[in-house]
Design a protein around this nucleic acid. Structure first.
Lengths: 208, 208
DNA sequence: TATAAAAGTAACCAAATAGTTACTTTTTGG
DNA sequence: CCAAAAAGTAACTATTTGGTTACTTTTATA
């Protein structure tokens, strides 16, 4: 592929990512993607074959960014357990804040019963994350008296649940929170709360 | 409106709820809704005016079910604070499990920047919920030494976040959890974990 | 039971949309 | 510098889709 073609291809990808994340597969129009990319529609079919394959390509790219984050999460650094846990939660929230297209594409994907997610066998990093969190918990057990029921799985569900939901449902949450949920200080409060809650859970309240 | 008309109208509503929750506004086809309801398409326009108004009607109906739950949540019963908190979380999880169309419609709605949610000024019950949770917290303060940073807002975000996300993202979570997330014992484990975590947070680990 | 109103339908339309074909322009290597 | 290959386009098609119109059937009641 020539230089010019790569530039054009990337322009299509950029535009299509925004379109698909905003409107989903059904809501997006190939004509509109072509127009916004300043390109003839036929070129999209030449490069990507079909609307569906274009969508798949975009989803893989966007999901890969999250996979990269997960690889960071498994070896999170910090002086003690709490600061490592804080960093873990912070990295997750920060990623979600800075990657709204990921949040939206994962929502579309879940509404579509994770069709492409399953097809491409993504989510295999998850067991790696669980192992990493398990090791983190082992370290916690040296510092604190961790209750038996505390598992990496439950903690991950809590962090991912609180994190993802904060951003995915912000439109319907906005109203009742009143605040600007994307405001840095509000966000910091939320992160602090999640960290402290998890710490209380893990340490049985004897963390300080 | 005659008896027959009401039956027909309800049949359309039932079918449309499934269609819209499964495929969203753009993915749903008026023709298909008409076919599945065993009705001529023109009748849908006679009753509801447009595809958009039909969607709005459905969304209001589905959201009202959640509003009803919230009215239950504010006056949750129980012997002590922990059992009331448990009941609160249980009711939320149970509702989400039994109302998959609500979960999906709220996801569509959030992807649509809460257009109808805002238009219809839904979510006004949220401040009522916050007040209810505040009163629950006041009761907790009689029993336990509750840290200052603990607020109704943060607890609600945690419960709603963990609850909603568990169901909304189950398709992409399934893979890494391995289990059947809808299995009663797995679900009970999750609820227990959320309750215990919140209790540890609120009581500073001195709940038992 | 006659009739008016309500319930319901067949068949159509205009616009939109995914995808294709035959063509022109640009780039590059010998 | 020129021919072949790659990049890119204009204009088309078949189908789908939201929406409408003119019509028939059913129901209730005076």
């Amino acid at each position: 592929m020539q230089r010019r073609a790569e530039v054009t291809r990337n322009r299509i990808l950029e535009v299509a990512e925004i379109e698909f994340s905003e409107k989903g597969f059904y809501g997006s129009r190939v004509d509109e993607i072509a127009n916004k990319a300043g390109v003839n529609k036929a070129l999209i079919y030449k490069y990507f074959g079909s609307k569906e394959e274009l969508y798949e390509t975009i989803f893989s790219i966007v999901y890969e960014r999250f996979s990269k984050l997960e690889r960071q999460l498994i070896s999170v650094e910090g002086l003690d357990f709490k600061s490592r846990m804080r960093r873990f939660v912070e990295l997750d929230f920060l990623f979600l804040k800075e990657n709204p297209t990921y949040v939206r594409m994962l929502m579309w994907e879940n509404l579509n019963n994770a069709k492409y997610y399953k097809e491409k066998r993504l989510g295999n990093t998850k067991s790696v994350i669980l192992e990493g969190l398990d090791q983190l918990l082992d370290d916690a057990k040296k510092e604190f008296d961790v209750p038996e029921e505390v598992t990496a799985k439950q903690i991950l569900l809590t962090i991912y649940g609180c994190g993802f939901n904060y951003f995915s449902n912000s439109a319907t949450m906005m109203g009742f929170l009143g605040d600007d949920m994307m405001d840095d200080s509000i966000l910091k409060e939320r992160i602090d709360s999640v960290v402290n809650m998890i710490m209380a859970y893990i340490t049985g309240g004897k963390s300080d």
